[in-house]
Design a protein around this nucleic acid. Structure first.
Lengths: 153, 153
DNA sequence: GTTGTAAATCGTAATTATTCCGTTTAATCA
DNA sequence: TGATTAAACGGAATAATTACGATTTACAAC
């Protein structure tokens, strides 16, 4: 249990869309729903597969534009992983954090600590604008083979 | 100055190729030379540009195969950055480390500390197999506009 | 030095992720 | 309801990477 970190939910996500002046479309709702049901990083292809249940002929342009939009609005957070961009529901709030990522199923677990706090002295001759810290491995379900096979694209 | 971290050099790289049973070709020599002259992450396209000085009609297949081979042999080290895979000369030795990366010119600076040391308690329910930690920003030359423009592809 | 052979390279095509663009559709608001 | 304008369509363009059969080459054995 992690204090002070609220996962973005569907209601807040769609509310944020509206208040920022974007339209509340069924496709965006479905996308947010897909992310809220999957606590792991999803590739564009995986999101597309989920979308096709309801929108079998969704344009890839729409898919990518909305993924970018949701990331801009901090409804989802993205990372580059294994050659493609992947997204998960934004962990929300002001609590800066990082993730553990399961190499097999993409499941994520937030980490409480941020390593940047101790490292500032090491880079005095650079102006730091960002950082990436991710831990990879296997979650307990994948480790013991109990996890169902997940289409990773 | 960082103690105990020897940058891979051309001689050792080619020696490593031979002892592992791979052939010592002029193209591989040139590739290693390009990396040894550039202390920063290079994209495949940048390496190709360097190769074309000497081998104007280099096949992209050869380029990518050799990049992968050099990475396997730990002659170079790769990372995914801004949508493509980039490589730099391997920092070598047993000293595990991470990098600061300049967003503009790709220049790198090794960091002495590894944040994993303090974080083990946070992931008891995962088997950890690797991690990535990179700091982004601007090096002093790029910050003050003194750096020449670098073709980043 | 000659030769055999596996590895390396070539050249081109296929694949895959992502973006672009002109047209059509639909959400929102007066 | 009608007007306005963003969103979506769909098909093509772009760009990184991989695949593959044919040819060449490094290198070791003779």
């Amino acid at each position: 249990m992690i204090a002070g970190r609220l996962l973005m939910n569907k209601e807040e996500a769609l509310d944020r869309l509206k208040t920022k002046g974007f339209k509340y479309t069924g496709k965006r709702e479905k996308m947010v729903e897909i992310f809220s049901k999957n606590d792991r990083y999803l590739s564009a292809k995986e999101v597309l597969a989920g979308m096709q249940e309801e929108y079998p002929s969704l344009s890839v342009d729409t898919l990518y534009r909305n993924l970018s939009l949701l990331e801009e609005l901090e409804i989802v957070e993205g990372t580059e992983w294994e050659g493609e961009r992947r997204y998960r529901m934004h962990c929300g709030g002001e609590s800066h954090h990082h993730h553990f990522i399961c190499r097999k199923c993409g499941k994520t677990k937030p980490l409480n600590q941020c390593p940047m706090n101790e490292l500032l002295s090491d880079t005095e001759d650079f102006r730091i604008t960002g950082h990436k810290f991710e831990i990879y491995g296997y979650c307990s379900r994948c480790e013991t083979g109990r996890a169902e096979t997940v289409n990773r694209g």
